[in-house]
């Protein structure tokens, strides 16, 4: 079956560990032979792909785990551009676009994912058998 996962939850959230559940669900789907049409990171979920988040030793490094999964299975991983910019997750283009002499910005979107618009979410729902939201 073809799935799309919509991830609203951030790692290290005070509200629960839903982001970890999303990762484990994705991992499980792929191990069971299902396919993932797209991962769509929205809202607080954009923090899952922040390369500047440093996980303490001995803790599970969720951003690194997402990146490895995306690379291993060549997943289509899209981060909502509006949600990402609001929360300080920028790719190379956006970093250059918004940087000013007064404001140094980092290019901190983990490689393997891309910033794009909400059209990618709508497109994903139209082309998947199931859409699962992790909020």
């Amino acid at each position: 079956m073809l799935f799309t996962l919509v991830i609203h939850a951030a790692p290290h959230s005070l509200l629960g560990s839903t982001a970890y559940n999303a990762y484990q669900f994705a991992q499980c789907l792929l191990q069971e032979g299902h396919r993932i049409h797209r991962l769509f990171f929205y809202g607080e979920g954009v923090h899952n792909l922040n390369a500047q988040a440093i996980t303490p030793q001995g803790e599970f490094d969720l951003p690194a785990a997402w990146q490895a999964l995306i690379e291993q299975y060549q997943l289509d991983s899209v981060v909502c551009i509006a949600a990402a910019l609001r929360r300080g997750v920028l790719d190379d283009n956006e970093q250059k676009r918004h940087q000013t002499p007064q404001r140094a910005l980092a290019n901190n979107l983990l490689t393997g994912s891309e910033l794009s618009g909400l059209g990618q979410l709508i497109d994903a729902t139209a082309h998947s058998d199931r859409t699962i939201t992790f909020a």
Partner: peptide, 19 residues
């Protein structure tokens, strides 16, 4: 929460795609 605005934005995007 941000869900209010972000939900609306997603719905408008779906409308723009004629769903």
């Amino acid at each position: 929460s941000s869900l209010g605005r972000e939900g609306l934005e997603a719905a408008l995007a779906a409308g723009a795609f004629d769903q």
